[in-house]
Each structure stands twice: as C-alpha cells, then as structure tokens.
Design a protein around this nucleic acid. Structure first.
Ligand SMILES: [Mn+2]
Ligand SMILES: [Mn+2]
Ligand SMILES: [Zn+2]
Ligand SMILES: [Zn+2]
Lengths: 147, 147
DNA sequence: CACCAAAATGATATTGGTTATCAAGTACAC
DNA sequence: GTGTACTTGATAACCAATATCATTTTGGTG
C-alpha cells in the first residue's frame, strides 16, 4: 500500500504540475514508514537523521502537499500542534486520546457516521469533513489493577 | 440563569480563595451577555469599549478561570484560535460549522453520546470530555435555491 | 482606620508553532 | 545546453497565547 500512496502522490503532482525532487521523495518515504501520528517536528527529525540538508520549511510544505494529495490527514489535538497520519483511500476513523500518556487509539463507528449525516441533513448542512475526539484515560493510566 | 452563573463563579472563587475584582465582574458580565462563540480578542474589544483600562492579559486569565469554574467552555475550531461559549449546568452539545460563512449550529444527540461511551468502554478508556465538530456548508452557503 | 502580605492587574517581552520572504539551486520542456 | 518557472533552505515575520514584573488592589488584622 506504500507503493499505492506513492502513485497517488505522483498522480497529484502530475496533475498540479509539481516537480519531482529528492526532498519530497525522502519526506514521503519517512512519512509512509511510520504508523504513528507524528508532529512536523518529529518528521523533520527523522528526515534530518538520514538527510541533514533538508530544511524544516520543506517538511512543512511537503506535509501540506501530502494532505492536499489526499494521502495524509492533518490532526489538531489539544495542544495546537499539528500531527499527520496516513489517510487511507476511502476509509475514515476517529480517535480515543489518553490525556495521561498521549496514547491514541483509532476506531470507526458506522452508526455514528450515519447519525452525523442525519443531523447535518436535518439542519440543511452538507458535511465535507468531521472530527471526533474522545479524551480520557487509557487502561494503563487509569491505574494498575482496574480492568 | 445569568444570576446562576454568577453565583457559580463566586462559589468557585470562594473555594479557590480568589479575590473579587472589578475586572472579573466586567469580563463575566460581557461574557454572559452574549450567546455566541467569541474569541478572546472579540471579548476583549467588547470589554474595552466600556472599560478601556482592562488589559487583554486579564481577559485571557479570566476566561481560563471561567472555564475552570465550569461556566465557560473553550473551543478550538479550525484556525487554532480559542473561542468561548456558555457551559450550561449538566448539558452538553456539539457543533455544525459552516466552512463558508463560519456559522455555528449547536446540536445534541443522546444516541451518539451513548455510542461514544460504549466505544470508550470497549477500549478500556474512561472518557472525561469529547469534541465532535461537523464541517460543511450551511443552507445559505450551499447556494440560493437548494433546499 | 491604618497597615500589611498576598493576589491581581496591565504593559510589555517572550514563547512556540507555523508561514512568508527571498536569494540560490534545481527540474524539465524546448 | 538554455531558459525559466518551480523548489529549496535560511531566516525573518507572524500570531495567539503565556510569562514577567513593577505597580495597584484586595481583604484580613489590630
Ligand atoms: Mn489516526
Ligand atoms: Mn456551542
Ligand atoms: Zn494513557
Ligand atoms: Zn454558511
């Protein structure tokens, strides 16, 4: 599926008339090599370890591009720092976030998604995106013995 | 209900050993006098129009206090600028947000809330708060004739 | 009421994440 | 190979929010 995403980005780049650069390749590889929700700074540090010359402005710019290309999703959690995760083709998920340790659990719920559409329709809205974050304590942070 | 909120703040202030100041009274009054979702800057401007001496640092500080006291809720919409709204006693609502004109519609859905609890429980999380924002176009921004 | 310690205020500086600027470098169509 | 538009990286600028700190105010005490 990494290959798939690379193709998706190449397609987007072609359509937009973007040029192919070593920097974008490296950043895309670093991004695709992780399953986590990384901040731009974290991505930048990973990038720099193998390619010290790449500047963080380029990482910011490229992550915006990946989001526009539809292969990355930008998250804004509680602290106002952007994070990026993989955006899978037609899929979507929301997040459970531990306020104790920062752990993130992903979930999807068809029923909720349908209800969201219903609510929007009832108010005459057409939804283009949504965000649902559940904040709380993960099993570990709740305390040792609790189930 | 404004009186109620003032009492709630006074109770919180007493419990925390906070002192009673003219500035906090003014800011609380301005906040309670609106039904909207205001940014700190917007609140500051309203405050300044009747009380030019009050500084914006005090507005920031006081809004944090109102949130801690449980009578204001801080929202972080798309642009990263905090907004505050009234927090009613045991109530909760989520938001439909028009990406065209910025209009905000409030809604609540018991079924979704229950499902959220279920999902959290399934993953061993105990939820302390959540955020659900539906972004899209309001009836007006969708185009004139569309129902 | 006068006095004092602690809290609050307001002007300002600072922070931190992100974006804009711009000279220098690079890709790519011709 | 040339030319030009795109891209990059260093840096400055931006902006919301917070920290700092001298000054003022509060609320208790005598
Ligand atoms: Mn995720
Ligand atoms: Mn609201
Ligand atoms: Zn945790
Ligand atoms: Zn609208």
């Amino acid at each position: 599926m990494i290959l798939e995403k690379k193709k998706a980005f190449n397609a987007y780049a072609a359509k937009q008339g973007l040029r192919s650069t070593r920097q974008r390749d490296v950043i895309l590889d670093v991004f695709l090599a992780t399953r986590q929700h990384l901040s731009v700074e974290e991505l930048y540090l990973k990038v720099k370890s193998s390619h010290p010359g790449i500047g963080f402005a380029t990482v910011y710019r490229t992550m915006k591009l990946l989001a526009e290309a539809g292969i990355a999703r930008e998250l804004t959690l509680k602290n106002g720092q952007a994070r990026y995760e993989h955006q899978l083709a037609g899929e979507h998920h929301d997040h459970l976030i531990c306020t104790g340790c920062g752990a993130i659990v992903e979930f999807e719920d068809e029923t909720i998604e349908k209800l969201q559409q219903e609510i929007a329709g009832r108010h005459g809205f057409s939804i283009t995106s949504h965000r649902m974050d559940l904040f709380g304590l993960c099993p570990i942070c709740r305390g040792g013995t609790a189930g």
